[in-house]
Design a protein around this nucleic acid. Structure first.
Lengths: 214, 214
DNA sequence: ACCTGAACACCGTTCAAGT
DNA sequence: ACCTGAACACCGTTCAAGT
């Protein structure tokens, strides 16, 4: 097929199809040739729209970051902003765990990731955090959220009930974790987020002074 | 070359060479053929010692997990145990960031990862934590540590000073983060670990009762 | 038991050729 | 401008053949 009157591909269509493919089959099964087949074209056609496979992954990653809500920063209590951002950040990433290893490489030149970093850092500094601490908080939140989205804790244990018995005395119930995957992972994230914010509140009081009433 | 008198390969030598290769060139550049070349053999030879490439990655991951110190659990204050484990866990993983995406898939059937999960969970339950909370704490610590080891926060920003100026008002100093990579990433981890432990202490008091003096 | 070459079905990417 | 087939240098894995 030569060049059609109407272009077969667009960056948008490539990004969406790539995201679906990665969600469904993982980063390992994601190849330019598989993606092209899914789009009804041949592999090389993609190179009219993206320079490399990595650039496609960047675009997919940024389209997911763009879904994170940072509107809570810049007004109100920083603790509420941190919690709302953290929940939104985790929920956006956890919907696409297979792309998280790529996304966790940092914002690089991805616009949505940079806009998020800008809003978070700016919001924390405006709230009174010293700049170095604001950086640390942005970093530690990324650690916690990407780590939680990267791989389910609960699904990390094999489901075979007999597997743990002999060797691991405290893991006799670990085979049941997978059944409760969502509540385990969400419960762990919620407990960690609450603990982080409570701990940071104390640091703030020591460093900056009294917190406003909420 | 036919079969030599003395075997050319061993699981141990394969694991060590694979770890070095992954550290030096990343998961993307790691192939069975490259690994075999490094070992002075041909690709198929590896299949006498491991069933798949994935099994090699599992073995590399577990050899890193085996370096984590969990001896702090089971005696003394759970807060100290959590801190010492967290620091050791992070330091083991951060020395090999390229393998972390594989490692973060959970313990699976890897003995060192299972032994670590067993010690942590057992230690927390013995310290008085309700079982469900002990699971959550193990999970949230894995999130935080793997996230911090997965990708440097500081190196995630481009070093070009002119890059941020126009678009991202609060990131005007972000190009300098890479210079201070180690102190930024370690400072963020330390702040997060302190906050988590302080926050969890309050949860413990509410849930279980008074903490012992330290 | 353990290493080999040949083979299979794949990769990412380049490039000249088509319209 | 945008899609194509052919080509290059790679992949993971299987398998029969060697000693």
């Amino acid at each position: 097929m030569p060049r059609p009157r109407q272009a077969l591909l667009s960056r948008q269509r490539i990004i969406e199809t790539a995201a679906n493919l990665i969600d469904a089959e993982g980063l390992g099964a994601f190849s330019t040739r598989r993606l092209a087949a899914e789009l009804g074209v041949r592999g090389p056609s993609l190179y009219n729209h993206f320079a490399t496979k990595d650039e496609i992954l960047d675009a997919v990653a940024d389209s997911i970051t763009a879904q994170v809500d940072v509107s809570s920063f810049g007004h109100g209590d920083w603790r509420d902003a941190l919690r709302q951002w953290g929940l939104s950040y985790r929920s956006a990433l956890a919907a696409h765990p297979n792309i998280v290893p790529h996304l966790a490489q940092g914002p690089g030149r991805r616009p949505a990731a940079l806009a998020m970093a800008d809003a978070v850092y700016g919001g924390l500094v405006d709230a009174g955090w010293p700049p170095a601490r604001a950086t640390h908080i942005g970093a530690l939140m990324r650690y916690f959220v990407t780590g939680s989205a990267l791989g389910s804790f609960a699904r990390g244990f094999v489901e075979d009930p007999g597997f743990y018995a002999a060797q691991y005395p405290h893991l006799s119930q670990a085979h049941r974790l997978a059944e409760h995957q969502q509540s385990v992972d969400e419960g762990a994230f919620a407990l960690g987020l609450d603990a982080l914010i409570e701990g940071l509140s104390h640091t703030y009081e020591r460093l900056v002074g009294a917190l406003p009433p909420r």
